[in-house]
Amino acid sequence: MNQAHTHAPRHGASHGRHQVRGTDGQAEILDLDAEVLAEHIASITAWLPLKTGPRQIVDLGCGTGAGTFALLDRFPDAHVTAVDASAEHLQRLHTKACARGVQERVCTVQADLDEAVWPDLGSPDLVWASASMHHMAHPDRALRTVHDALAPGGLFAVVELAGHPRFLPENAPKDRPGLEERVHAAADRLQAEHMPHRGADWGPMLTAAGFTVEDERTIAVNIEASRSEAIGLYALGILQRIRSVIAERISPEDLTALDQLLDTSSPHSILRRDDLTVRTERTVWAARHT
Rank of each mutant, 00 (worst) to 15 (best):
T280N: 10
T283Y: 03
A66S: 15
S228T: 13
A225V: 13
L113T: 07
H289Y: 09
S265L: 08
D215P: 05
S130C: 14
A162Q: 10
A97T: 03
L72V: 03
L143H: 03
A186E: 05
H134W: 09
V146Y: 00
A151S: 08
S244T: 10
P204S: 00
G178T: 08
H147D: 02
A186M: 06
T207P: 01
A38L: 05
V183H: 11
V159N: 08
F69Q: 00
H7T: 08
G154Q: 04
G154M: 07
S86E: 09
Q260W: 13
P267A: 06
V117D: 12
H184N: 11
F75A: 12
D84V: 14
G63S: 07
H18W: 14
D77S: 12
I246K: 01
L72E: 05
L126K: 02
E253S: 14
C62Y: 08
D125G: 11
E180P: 02
R189L: 13
H147R: 05
R198D: 12
A149I: 14
A149N: 09
E104D: 12
R279S: 14
P152L: 11
A116G: 03
A70G: 09
S251E: 06
D188F: 11
G122C: 03
H194L: 15
H11R: 15
D274Q: 12
A42S: 11
E88A: 15
R92T: 07
H11G: 11
R227K: 11
Q260S: 10
R241Y: 07
R10F: 07
E115M: 10
I270R: 00
V158F: 00
F69D: 00
D24Q: 02
F156D: 06
A82V: 05
Y234I: 08
T207Y: 00
S251G: 08
A208E: 06
W202N: 02
A131F: 01
H89E: 09
R92C: 04
V183E: 12
V127K: 09
D188A: 13
T52R: 13
E160M: 06
P173Y: 03
G25C: 02
T283C: 10
Q103D: 15
E214V: 13
P119H: 06
A286I: 05
Q56S: 11
W118N: 12
R217Q: 13
I242K: 08
E104G: 02
I238K: 04
